[in-house]
């Protein structure tokens, strides 16, 4: 009886294992779909480009299966200015789960030039340093893409 139970369990395990394995692999690949997009370029075309890339990644994976974070620093921080022409798209992407990170160092330096800190998009979160944020995300398994 005991040996029969063991055999039955073993057979079940053999039958089920491939299925569980594929589920696990699928779940893992979804979990791995984590990308950090860097924007640090003064070229305004890059603003459109980085938003397009985020959009396309979400479209491919589905917003529940991918983590996308856009980190803006240097001249690229203009993307996250409150009145940026792309604010409608930013709001839409934020609604789809995209995180927008604004570099505090850049904000501070731009504030010196402007005479006041630039007003940032309320959908963005401030991080102490954009480049450090990217390094931390890479350590967590994110893939860096710089369109």
């Amino acid at each position: 009886m005991k040996s029969n139970l063991i055999k039955a369990f073993a057979l079940l395990a053999v039958l089920v294992t491939p299925f569980i394995g594929s589920q696990a692999i699928a779940a893992k690949s979804f979990a791995d779909a984590k990308v950090v997009l860097q924007i640090s370029d003064p070229n305004p075309f890059k603003q459109t480009l980085v938003l397009n890339v985020a959009s396309n990644i979400i479209k491919h994976y589905g917003q529940d299966n991918v983590e996308v974070e856009i980190v803006a620093f240097g001249p690229g921080l203009r993307l996250l200015f409150a009145e940026n022409a792309n604010k409608g798209r930013i709001a839409s992407l934020a609604g789809a789960g995209v995180t927008f990170s604004a570099c505090a160092n850049t904000t501070r330096n731009m504030g010196k030039k402007l005479g006041h800190p630039p007003a940032l998009n309320p959908k963005s979160v401030t991080v102490s340093a954009g480049v450090v944020r990217i390094i931390d995300l890479i350590k967590k398994g994110y893939t860096l893409v710089k369109p």
């Binding site: 397009n52 890339v53 396309n56 990644i57 979400i58 491919h60 798209r89 893409v145």
Partner: peptide, 28 residues
């Protein structure tokens, strides 16, 4: 992961060609 990188690359290329997904619509 390789596949993911390919997808990321493809997404970048598509975006450069002006492909915008249906997730976000542009208003000009």
């Amino acid at each position: 992961m390789k596949n993911f990188k390919k997808v990321a690359l493809a997404a970048t290329c598509t975006a450069m060609l002006g492909g915008v997904s249906g997730v976000v619509t542009t208003a000009n």
